[in-house]
Design a protein around this nucleic acid. Structure first.
Lengths: 201, 201
DNA sequence: GTCTATACAGCGATAGAC
DNA sequence: GTCTATCGCTGTATAGAC
């Protein structure tokens, strides 16, 4: 089974759905094939048919996650005209994930990074690089249009944004209180756009 | 064995040293009694004498970590006169941890939160609360002295600071490049103090 | 593509000797 | 306080029937 299962492979997709949620909630070292199999009412052996090893499953998870994120970013760029609106839309992706009591898949995997199979590690790197590249472009455009005030490079600001949002999810979930996320995420955008952004924007 | 071992219990302290590093590097679900025992050249059974269960070990880890953090914060408050200097000192605590390729103990545990024994979960909450209370006081004092510009409440700014620093560690370690940490952490302080803070300050 | 059955290592934890 | 020995369970992974 390839890292990227065929789009029509319904069982493989269901496996990815369940495993993705389990990683986002419990971590890569906090779930097992047995957990996925039980939820789908199939056997562990059937799982291994679709994803021979846990590392392969992890790599496929990131692959799909990156694809979907790239699609979300493309949609954001197509919808929102202003850089500030694109950034608010970007933050909303994190907010919506946290609302389901999940962390970002790759934020979770970043914590467990030192224990991950090599293919999963490089996927994590790819995800962050992808995000920062998109953000840096939005920030560069916004700065050129006078919408965004950059203190340093656009790339550095992109890194700071991703770090801030990942951190906001991380320290919010134990308290189960979205107000903490807003307190942590708000200043990230406010500092760039020079505006106060209220919760839910 | 109590959650807080006697200060003179040398073996227990060595166990905590090793376990702490293992959790910070690999996570609570990424290390085992066997790992600790092998490193200390004792048996798993001896470990269980000092910490009957893994949950008890985890609780003791946080207990000591909170004590040490409280001591560091008290030392910072005693040394640095300005609020900005205290905040820089606070950020340096995170930087120094990351330099050893470790995450914050409780940042790591926050990622794994949903899988942790209850006693460990409440310890994580306690750690963040402790940090935010200290930061909120520094920020309040700094605002009163005109050193700090707060857009919202001091408590919200404290939450944002902790989130930003935890996130900076999280997204830096996979890249093994401290420049990423500086890019992510710099704006956190700059936004409060109105100054650009260069790496290493 | 899914099953039963199983291999084999590792896990947290305990009993009891010293 | 540390040991040997072991328990019961779960982990990932595989073989081979259907």
């Amino acid at each position: 089974m390839a890292v990227r299962p065929a789009r029509g492979d319904e069982t493989a997709m269901r496996v990815l759905d369940v495993a993705e949620r389990l990683v986002q909630v419990r971590g890569f070292n906090g779930f097992s094939y047995a957990d996925v199999a039980a939820e789908l009412r199939i056997t562990k052996a059937a799982l291994h048919y679709h994803f021979a090893s846990k590392g392969e499953l992890g790599a496929a998870l990131i692959e799909r996650y990156c694809d979907r994120m790239a699609a979300s970013l493309a949609a954001l760029a197509a919808t929102d005209r202003s850089a500030a609106a694109r950034l608010r839309g970007y933050a909303a992706l994190y907010r919506n994930t946290l609302r389901e009591e999940r962390l970002c898949l790759c934020g979770m995997l970043a914590a467990e990074y030192q224990t991950l199979p090599q293919a999963v590690q490089s996927g994590v790197i790819r995800f962050f690089t992808l995000n920062e590249a998109w953000l840096a472009e939005v920030l560069t455009d916004g700065a050129a249009a006078g919408e965004i005030q950059l203190a340093g490079s656009a790339q550095d600001a992109a890194v700071a944004l991703v770090a801030g949002l990942e951190g906001a999810m991380l320290v919010t979930r134990p308290f189960n209180d979205m107000a903490r996320f807003e307190a942590a995420a708000g200043p990230l955008l406010a500092g760039l756009t020079g505006t106060l952004v209220s919760a839910g924007d």
